[in-house]
Write a protein that binds this DNA or RNA. Structure first.
Lengths: 183, 183
DNA sequence: CCCGGTTGTGCAACTAGTTGCATAAAGGCT
DNA sequence: AGCCTTTATGCAACTAGTTGCACAACCGGG
């Protein structure tokens, strides 16, 4: 049940319309909580019905018209409650590790190319994160808010670093496996 | 669509009943692809209907009776196909990072205790993985299968190591935040 | 011998997330 | 004016996963 809170967080940071939220999810919050525009619109409806957000008075509500939302005090309170509440970590689900395990029993034929592709994607994501770090967190920018946000970004950077290293290692390992095509 | 393949992998490794599979998921495959017994039973039914697995002839099928399954050639072929097929990485979803970001806007009150709890859980999991590594992958055990399985376990170890480090750092960071209770 | 706990299998309802498509206004182009 | 693309919002159907419960056989103790 995190999507409504992801949206509340985004809206507290800055009131937005559904599409603006969708774009912001693609760029920043979506790095650790992705959502499609359909999910977002549906959830905005629920949040409004619950009295957590409201449409900004200025905009007239018509289909195809921009409709911006802002967080109400009740929404902020709910967000604070959820943030402080204890939550059990959900078990991981990683198809790539699963495939590696499957490869151990049915053979590694064909998986290598995809591993390379994933490696490229993770390298690309890592570069993007490092770009953001350089841009948004230059030395000196260390208010409480900045420090916390930087911490979150660091998690992203470290995770991508892990994946690039792990995938590199996996590919090296493959190269040493008997029956490997060295051409 | 990974659960059926997770089950096929487990069954290729060793034919099992639904409950045995459930237990094995709790111990090993579940570390990166968790599943409840209900999911497993449902999926076993589908896999049987698809002709990928069959019940071992010996057992008589009655409710409350053990019913073991084994993988048929078609199942093995499907597993090989899936393993080799290219798959796009699914976007992450991490509630803890989301909460940290929310904490940046609504304050860190109350989240610290849960962070400590998570740190303990990750430390515990890390210790378990290291135990398994010592037990199952002593030096010298390095057939192709062992190397691949070890690689998967290494991913688990490295990820837990990352989380323990990140959480420790987050807690240090908190201690330096203005308004932090030092008692 | 029957009663309660454990083992094993399973259904049904619910929740969350994804996919595909529909609708509407606005702006440019000819 | 008519048409095409882009921006913006939204519904409906589907898929995957979770939760709660039910049922059946077996096994031990009083």
């Amino acid at each position: 049940m995190s999507l409504p809170h992801a949206i509340l967080t985004a809206l507290v940071e800055k009131p937005s319309s559904g599409l603006e939220l969708t774009r912001r999810f693609d760029r920043s919050i979506g790095y650790f909580w992705s959502a499609t525009h359909q999910q977002i619109y549906r959830e905005l409806g629920k949040l409004e019905a619950d009295g957590f957000i409201r449409t900004l008075p200025s905009a007239q509500p018509a289909r195809g018209q921009k409709k911006s939302y802002e967080v109400l005090p009740a929404g902020r309170a709910e967000l604070a409650r959820w943030t402080a509440a204890s939550q059990d970590p959900k078990p991981h689900r990683d198809p790539l590790l699963l495939r590696m395990r499957a490869a151990a029993v049915v053979g590694t034929d064909g998986i290598e190319a995809d591993l390379r592709r994933h490696l490229d994607l993770h390298r690309w994501q890592l570069a993007e994160y490092e770009e953001i770090e350089k841009r948004d967190f230059p030395p000196g920018k260390d208010s409480s808010q900045d420090r916390l946000r930087h911490l979150v970004l660091r998690a992203g950077i470290d995770l991508e670093t892990f994946w690039t290293q792990w995938l590199s290692r996996a590919l090296e390992e493959f190269a040493e496996l008997p029956g490997h095509e060295t051409a």
